[in-house]
C-alpha cells in the first residue's frame, strides 16, 4: 500500500466525511477549545462526565481530514470509558503517532485507533492527528483556557 493510501484509509475518509458525535452538547460538564494556529484547525470538545465516567463526548469544528477523522474516532473510543482509561489512550495514541509505540508489537489498548498509525510517516501531520487528543487531555485536566497546539 502506498503511503498516501496508508494515511488516507477508507475508515479515515469515512470519519472525515461523516464525523461521529459531531454536535454541540447543550449542557456539558466540560467544554474545551483546541486550536492549531499553523493550520487553522479548530475544534471544541464537549464532555458529559458522571463521576469517573465519560458518559458522552461530542465535538465541533473545522480542519483537515486527519484532524477531523481523529477527533471523530476519539469520541467513539473514549465514550463510556473512565477518566483513567481515557488518559491511557491519550498517552498511547500520542506515542503511536510520534513513532514511539508500534501497535503491531507493543501491548496497547488502542483498538481501531491504530488505523491512524500511518501518520507517524508524516511528521508535519502528527499535530493534526493529536489536536483532538490534546484538547481532550486539557479538558480532563480541567483547563479552561483555549488550548494552543504548538509542537
Amino acid at each position: 500500500m502506498s503511503e498516501t493510501n496508508e494515511l488516507y484509509q477508507q475508515v479515515i475518509l469515512d470519519h472525515n466525511r461523516k464525523p461521529r458525535n459531531f454536535k454541540v452538547l447543550e449542557q456539558p460538564t466540560r467544554e474545551q477549545m483546541g486550536h492549531n494556529p499553523l493550520c487553522g484547525d479548530e475544534l471544541t470538545i464537549y464532555l458529559e462526565l458522571e463521576g469517573d465516567l465519560i458518559r458522552d463526548i461530542t465535538f465541533q469544528g473545522s480542519g483537515c481530514a486527519i484532524s477531523k477523522a481523529s477527533a471523530s474516532m476519539m469520541t467513539v473510543s473514549v465514550k463510556g470509558k473512565t477518566l483513567a482509561e481515557a488518559e491511557t489512550l491519550f498517552r498511547e495514541f500520542h506515542q503511536m503517532v510520534k513513532g514511539e509505540l508500534d501497535p503491531e508489537t507493543a501491548p496497547n489498548h488502542l483498538g481501531r485507533l491504530t488505523i491512524l498509525a500511518g501518520v507517524r510517516e508524516f511528521p508535519a501531520r502528527v499535530k493534526c492527528a493529536s489536536l483532538a487528543w490534546h484538547t481532550l487531555h486539557a479538558a480532563l485536566e480541567g483547563k479552561s483556557d483555549p488550548l494552543l497546539i504548538k509542537e
Binding site: 498516501t4 488516507y8 493550520c39 483537515c64 481530514a65 486527519i66 501531520r125 493534526c128
Partner: peptide, 9 residues
C-alpha cells in the same frame, strides 16, 4: 478538501 491534505498527497 483541506489544503493540508492536498499538500500531503
Amino acid at each position: 478538501i483541506h489544503p493540508h491534505d492536498i499538500g500531503t498527497i
